[in-house]
Write a protein that binds this DNA or RNA. Structure first.
Lengths: 415, 415
DNA sequence: GGCCATTTATTAAGTTATGAATTAATAATA
DNA sequence: TATTATTAATTCATAACTTAATAAATGGCC
């Protein structure tokens, strides 16, 4: 039947999602099929009401190309961003616009056997409330902390399941295919597809938060390593400081650079009598950690010398880590992202200092350092991108030995 | 014409080179074409005298597969391994057998503007002497030290050319396509295709020699980074020892682990009155560096405590570097290769010790540590593999860059 | 202003590759 | 020992895809 033709249509949809506006010639190159075939597919997609023409783009010395884009109300993604304490759920259209208000709620992941059920129910609720028919939803993408095994759809740290995987569980309950990824990788995916690393071949995306995460783009693809554990930047052994890390080892990069450590250092400095505006702003109570971290970032932005010193010191050490990344992986760009990236240009000087001291110039000269502009949205955008990344791929489910069930992600509209 | 069909035939030849013996069904999977097409291509290759049947392989529960292999006297590769002082040239058949004696000659790369001409002439000589017709040579593969740009066919450190690239120059003079690679990458390629990392998806190959090189296999492919500089393991900043490195920085991994440093430490120890068999074996003169290094490795093998101590210390520090690799890249296997790997099991204990101290167990238990068995042949085998790796490759025009402006804030100073 | 090289789009004609059917040969099973 | 399930190899009609020819529209250049 039209099996192949369907798959090419999905490839076109995927490309239009990631690039928004493309000509027939561009599409032909991207899906690696001939122009004639691409034309045919495009015309069918138009008559099916999935793709629309948007007029002519400026010429670069030849006939002007007719541009095509996706109709926004045909497909949607469910994008979910989780951290250890809070979870956000959004429904997005094919241009990454939120369809409704982003649903944010508290959901503790550590030692919470009920977390997966709560999550699944919330997903159901959000979909139902949106009024969008499930066959219009391309999939559910979830970014979460912990050791995530993408193939198995499992998380070895949180959301323990019995028997079936996380993705299977959500698929069974909601009827919509689900995909999970590590939070740092999802941020890297967002930067690769819609952010500072857009269309880059080799990018390192550093996620400065309670830890220091790393998402790696290599040869244009998200790299996850043999078991899905790649990118444990936080725990590379870099110091002889004897400080115990949450991972059980000592001297990890995280022990000198995470926002958590920075807040601790701020408290110690205040106690030691440092003159700083932070004295009034930091409570030091554990439940105010988030607020305290923000206070330090803000104060540094306003010129508080102690706050700047704290961030500079962390920045220098992150820079040492980046120097290692550059030597080993020769990325074209390093993107600073995540909550901590809000401190913006304050990172610039100390990181540059570290690179000057620790990088072979030939390497550092070829690497651009950039700040993310996606901010808090990065994880949600990445989750949506994750869904569309998988769109049109055949998912094989190894059921009981004999039966290998497969299901392509498809929609009533075009199947 | 038979353009496509030709390209598929080359793919089949390539697969048969790397796997030696394959059935039609296996080939069909490897070249990702249907069984029917594969059958047709195979039959044509047989009637062209390139491929031969070798009889039936044991069955695994069905009809026995007819196995195919390459005729050995149809194609050859010219494999070249260079270091800073010596160059080896070999001609190999499709089973990596040497056709003639390996040609080894002195060729200093540093400050030698004549090096490329000498090399090219020697290649010509070797091919002529072999009596093999040039149209039977699939290509010339060269592994060399320095910063190698594979796409441009250039080496930024040695073999400077004017105008045309190294590979262009050799192609013009010999009429045979040439390919170059960094020496550490070429060793990794050898381990991936014919050595300890065979068929592995994610492998780190460590080349212990005058420096400490690294070749990286990621997702089944050699990884070279944005500019071809990836794998500068030797120069990651790991120590606060203040020791100046050849790269101009201080504290590089190399300053505590290279064979050069180990010899220096041996000399210092002897002077300080250490009881060791090395006292008689080490001359300390710079021209005997190679012999001295061998003496230390041999003495350690014979149980000399000082020699073992020297290697153990270096091994521990290499282990610290490996711990970083494991955290960042989650490889399935780490292979110790190169001249220094001859010390064999002496490395194992200190490296393991370092991993125990500096690795998150979940990561290190998933990584195998192995010793190379290819030894001195690795670079030549890798060079031959490089040729066949490129064999039959279609050169595509790079897709047009999207002119989408990203909302990136770049650090002007850094880029 | 007019020619030419480029780029894009469309269609018909021709080529290529595939699925389904078929034959063959084995291991596992009953 | 016969039966069944697997795996392998082959062939051929036809669906799938590309090439080549054609046309249209533009910028750059003399």
């Amino acid at each position: 039947m039209a099996g192949k033709s369907l798959s090419y249509k999905k490839k076109i949809i995927k490309q239009l999602y990631f690039s928004n506006l493309l000509s027939c010639a561009e599409l032909s190159i991207k899906i690696e099929k001939s122009l004639s075939l691409t034309t045919k597919m495009l015309n069918e997609l138009i008559s099916e009401g999935i793709v629309v023409e948007t007029g002519y783009a400026p010429s670069s010395g030849g006939r002007r190309p007719l541009m095509y884009t996706l109709k926004t109300d045909i497909f949607y993604t469910v994008a979910i961003a989780m951290d250890q304490f809070f979870t956000r759920i959004a429904i997005m259209d094919m241009r990454n616009n939120y369809i409704n208000k982003v649903e944010k709620f508290e959901l503790r992941l550590a030692d919470n056997p009920d977390a997966l059920h709560v999550l699944t129910n919330r997903i159901e609720e959000v979909i139902t409330q949106s009024g969008i028919s499930k066959n219009k939803i391309a999939g559910i993408g979830i970014g979460m902390p912990g050791f995530v095994n993408v193939q198995e759809g499992a998380n070895y740290t949180f959301l323990q399941t019995s028997g079936e995987s996380i993705t299977e569980h959500i698929f069974k309950k909601t009827g919509v295919p689900a995909f999970i990824e590590n939070d740092s990788s999802i941020v890297a995916l967002a930067e690769l597809r819609f952010g500072a690393a857009r269309n880059r071949k080799n990018a390192m995306v550093i996620n400065i938060g309670w830890g220091v995460g790393l998402g790696m783009i290599m040869d244009g693809e998200l790299f996850r390593g043999e078991n899905g554990f790649a990118g444990e930047f936080s725990h590379i052994p870099l110091f002889n400081n004897g400080k115990l890390c949450s991972c059980g080892k000592s001297g990890c990069l995280e022990t000198e650079t995470s926002l958590f450590v920075i807040v601790e250092k701020a408290k110690a400095g205040i106690q030691a009598g440092r003159v700083t505006a932070l004295k009034q702003l930091i409570s030091g109570k554990e439940e105010h950690l988030e607020r305290d971290a923000e206070a330090i970032i803000n104060s540094a932005g306003k010129g508080d010398r102690f706050a700047i010193e704290l961030l500079s010191e962390a920045g220098y050490n992150i820079g040492r880590g980046i120097a290692i990344l550059i030597h080993l992986l020769n990325p074209g760009i390093v993107v600073l992202s995540g909550r901590g990236a809000l401190a913006g240009k304050i990172w610039q000087a100390p990181i540059q200092q570290a690179l000057n001291e620790h990088c072979i110039p030939r390497l550092s000269v070829n690497t651009e350092i950039a700040l993310s502009a996606l901010g808090y949205e990065a994880e949600l955008i990445g989750s949506a991108a994750l869904v569309m990344e998988k769109y049109g791929e055949v998912i094989k489910k190894p059921a009981k030995k004999d039966n290998v069930k497969s299901r392509t992600i498809s929609f009533k509209g075009i199947s």
